[in-house]
Structures are given as structure tokens and as C-alpha cells.
């Protein structure tokens, strides 16, 4: 197999592009796809300071590397969720990456800084661990970005993640979620910092390949909390379709973002936001002025964790 661009020996084939690439042309391809996604969706400007959400996995570390290569001013944010050895290892990958590239990495330790970990939060709130994880991460991303004066928060959601989320939302006709799913979630006057997803043109096989070919070590192990996650079932279903017709994911998500999403506008009622009475983060007025994150915390006190 030859590289489509330079005819050297290829190291990876990407069926949806009907192409194979050598190492250098593949890394260039990844950078170009991210640059294209940023431009296509007006995600951010060159002078802006971006907070990159870092998990220690392939997507977030590839994202941080590519944004840095493209010349963006970035800092990373790693949140230690207290998931035993998994968190210890992912923490180390995040720190090693930042140190190797001389980049700033901010660290939040959920147990120390908030008084509960994901398991404790899940037990006391009767929410699934993935829900507690998501609520906690969204809270801290926004808090650190807002207090640090960042222009945007970049997350490592890729083409496979976003197409699986879209499929799940459509299968359940969660039209308000469909209307809100986008490559960019704009900043609000109420305190939400803009969120961007620069990897939406890259599949997770590409981000894994990017890391290996760039010499980036990342945590390969799956989060032990993720087993049985329905997102995996939607990914598997899309893989069958992708195998039958390469490019299906790109058409599904790309078509939605370019001309499908607007048809759902209005499905999400405009929500009036107020400041959370506990932490001052923006939260829907209907939630008794206490945000979802803070509603996790008091219940966690009963499980023996200190207040944070």
C-alpha cells in the first residue's frame, strides 16, 4: 500500500477517505483535518487562549499536540476522578506529556478539591458513574476556564464519539439534546465558556495512530466504569454501517451539523440561567438555584467524604 500523497510505503489506511498515508503525510492529514474543522465551524481565533480538557487518553493528548502544532496558545486541565489505579495511570500520562512538551497542565483532584470521588458521588446520588463523571468534569472545566480567563474549552470528542451520541439521541428522539449537539457550544452571558470539539473530522483510530506515530504515550486501558456504556453499543452499530459503506459516520454527523441540526432549533426551550446558590456557577433557574454538581455534593457527605 502506498501513500496517496508521496507514494512512499503507507503506515495507515483510512477507508472513508479511500486513502492510505505514510507517517509524515498522515500527521499532516490530522493537522489539516483539525484546522479545517476549526475554520468550518468558527471554533476559535488564532490569538485565543484555549483550555484543553486532558484525560491522559489518545484523543485528548492528540488534540493538545495538534492544537499546539497549529500554533494555538493552550493550557491543559486534568481532573483526577479518584478511580483507583486507572486515575493514577492516566494522571501520569497527562503529566508526562505536559512536561515533555513544556506545556502548562492544571490539575484538579476531585477527592481533595470537591470532597467526593466518582464512586462516592454515584453511590450517594444514585446516578450512574458516567453521569457523575460528566457533571463533575463539565463543572470543573467551566470553573477553571472562567476563572482563568480562557476563551474556549477544547474537548477530545471525535467523529466516532459524536456520531454515536447523535445516533443515541435520535433513537430516543431526545430532540432537545439533538438541537444542542454541535461542534461549538457558544459562550453565554451567564457564565458558560465556549466549548469546542476540534476532532470531529477525525475517527478514534486516527487519533490512536497519531499518538503512536508521534511518540505520545497514552492510557490504553478502558475506564473500569465505562463497561456496558450504551455509547459503546451505538459505536458498534455505526461500525457495522461504516464497514458496509465507508464514510457513513462522516456523512451522518457532517450532514447533521451542516443542514440537519437547524431543523431541530426551537426543540430546546430557552433556559433562563441563574447563579448556583452554592458555587455561583450558571444553572437553570428551574433547579432551585443549585447546580447539578452541587446537588451531588451534600449527598456525598453521608458517604464519609468531607465537603469541598
Amino acid at each position: 500500500m502506498k501513500c496517496r500523497k508521496c507514494r512512499e510505503a503507507a503506515v495507515i489506511e483510512i477507508r472513508r477517505h479511500n486513502a492510505a498515508f505514510c507517517r509524515d503525510c498522515f500527521l499532516e492529514h490530522c493537522n489539516r483535518q483539525v484546522a479545517k474543522a476549526i475554520k468550518e465551524h468558527d471554533m476559535c481565533l488564532e490569538r485565543e487562549h484555549i483550555l484543553v480538557a486532558i484525560s491522559g487518553g489518545k484523543d485528548s493528548l492528540a488534540l493538545w499536540a495538534i492544537l499546539t502544532d497549529l500554533g494555538y496558545a493552550t493550557s491543559g486541565l486534568y481532573i483526577d476522578l479518584g478511580i483507583g489505579e486507572y486515575s493514577e495511570r492516566s494522571h501520569k500520562f497527562a503529566v508526562d506529556f505536559a512536561n515533555t512538551r513544556n506545556l502548562e497542565l492544571k490539575i484538579v483532584d476531585l477527592t481533595e478539591d470537591a470532597g467526593f470521588d466518582v464512586s462516592g458521588g454515584a453511590r450517594s446520588s444514585h446516578r450512574p458513574p458516567c453521569s457523575v463523571c460528566g457533571i463533575s468534569k463539565r463543572h470543573w472545566f467551566n470553573k477553571v476556564a472562567s476563572e482563568g480567563g480562557f476563551d474556549a474549552i477544547a474537548t477530545g470528542h471525535n467523529l466516532d464519539d459524536e456520531s454515536a451520541t447523535l445516533l443515541g439521541n435520535l433513537l430516543h428522539w431526545q430532540v432537545e439534546y439533538v438541537a444542542r449537539q454541535g461542534a461549538v457550544l457558544p459562550a453565554t452571558n451567564d457564565g458558560f465558556v465556549r466549548k469546542i470539539k476540534p476532532l470531529i473530522r477525525l475517527g478514534e483510530r486516527e487519533t490512536a495512530a497519531y499518538c503512536v506515530l508521534s511518540g505520545i504515550d497514552y492510557i490504553v486501558d478502558e475506564c473500569p466504569m465505562a463497561a456496558g456504556n450504551t455509547g459503546l453499543a451505538y459505536k458498534a452499530a455505526l461500525s457495522v454501517l461504516e464497514d458496509f459503506s465507508p464514510g457513513t459516520r462522516q456523512m451522518f454527523l457532517g450532514g447533521f451539523l451542516s443542514h440537519g441540526r437547524e431543523r431541530f432549533f426551537g426543540a430546546d426551550e430557552e433556559v433562563r440561567l441563574v447563579s448556583c446558590r452554592v458555587c455561583a456557577s450558571p444553572t437553570p433557574a428551574a433547579d432551585d438555584a443549585e447546580c447539578a454538581y452541587c446537588r451531588l455534593k451534600p449527598k456525598s457527605r453521608h458517604s464519609g467524604f468531607s465537603d469541598g
Binding site: 503507507a10 503506515v11 507517517r23 484525560s55 458516567c130 478514534e204 475506564c223 459505536k235
Partner: peptide
């Protein structure tokens, strides 16, 4: 430190890793 495409030849002396790429956290 490199990757192989499916048409590439391998030998009995090789040490190869098959690394899964699907991650499953909620988005």
C-alpha cells in the same frame, strides 16, 4: 514505533501489538 497496513508482510520473528481504538466513556 510504526504501524502496519493489512497488506504488509510479517514473519515468525516479529513482535506485534494489536491496540484497540474504541473508547467508551460517555460524551
Amino acid at each position: 514505533d510504526s504501524l502496519l497496513t493489512k497488506d504488509q508482510r510479517v514473519s515468525d520473528d516479529d513482535e506485534i501489538e494489536l491496540r484497540p481504538v474504541v473508547s467508551g466513556g460517555a460524551s
